[in-house]
Amino acid sequence: MVKKLPALVGLAVLLVLPQVLGAEYSWLVLLLNRALIFAIMAIGLNLLTGFAGQISIGHAAFMAVGAFTSYGLGKFVGIPFWGALPIAGLAAGLVGYALGFPALRLSGHYLAIATLGFGVAVPQVLNLWESLTGGWTGVKPAAPYLLGISFREDRPFYYLILIALFIMAGLAVNLIKSRTGRAFIALRDSEVAAQAMGISLTKYKTQAFALSAFYAGIGGSLYAHMINYISPHDFGSGISMELFTIICLGGLASVNGSIVGAIFMSFLPKLTERISLVIQKSGAFEHSHFLQNVFKNFNQVLTGIILILVVLYLPMGLVDLWRKTKNLFTAKGVK
């Protein structure tokens, strides 16, 4: 039970959070929605990078495939969001599966470059496909509507994302504890030994890419119908790098870490912005023009510093904080 405590507390907090936030904090709900969508995609990326050991820094491309598939199905085929969501995941999964084959020949830094290239190319291609994506202008995916409930507002949409996150995290946890999850870890730790155990590198690497892209596709579809305005350039390298940072900060090869990392990375810039505002307002640096200028951009500096501190002192990720705190107490004899 103690083992499950942090997950249960986390779930309880997530369930009531939008309700306790007052109207003046509504903007926080939107931020939270984005964070949880990123958590879903981070879980997918973690399956690929953390568990199967295959790097991808072009993951936003799969998100874009999911987003525009979902939009296109609604707009041109008339499939509502509920049907389009899983198809968007499958479409991205299929693209991921295809990318898995050239990726088989590459590893480490070379795979990083190849996925980066893929991540840069996809938005460019989508940008030219104006009939679907609207090019530079972008398109407006509609808000979902089911059983008389409109998901136009952030709060109902929040619960929709939470259910999706719960399902996707559950599937990932199941997968990790299965033969496929063990095969991913095995090929990450020793390709030679994994093959000797009957694990086909082709089969499991492409499966890892497909699964991971499936998660990104689901995330992309949710994102498109939440934000209600997308253009190909919303899915650039910045998003890919953010996802990669999330899993490294939160914890590689950890589902909980992916969620914690996504929430942390979404709220950190807001937090540092507040801190730097307070410092500026205090007028402490009025005597020095130079320091005033420094503290104008203090939020970005502080964000950077915190990121560096986390990777320095928590190389296993933010999830390790829980274990470390627990050890601190058990070491003092408190069980």
């Binding site: 199941n174 504890k177 299965s178 033969r179 499966q207």
Partner: peptide
């Protein structure tokens, strides 16, 4: 093992 990817996603 006999089971494949889809059962693996529901392994527990």
């Amino acid at each position: 093992f006999r089971y494949g990817l889809l059962p693996a996603l529901l392994s527990r």
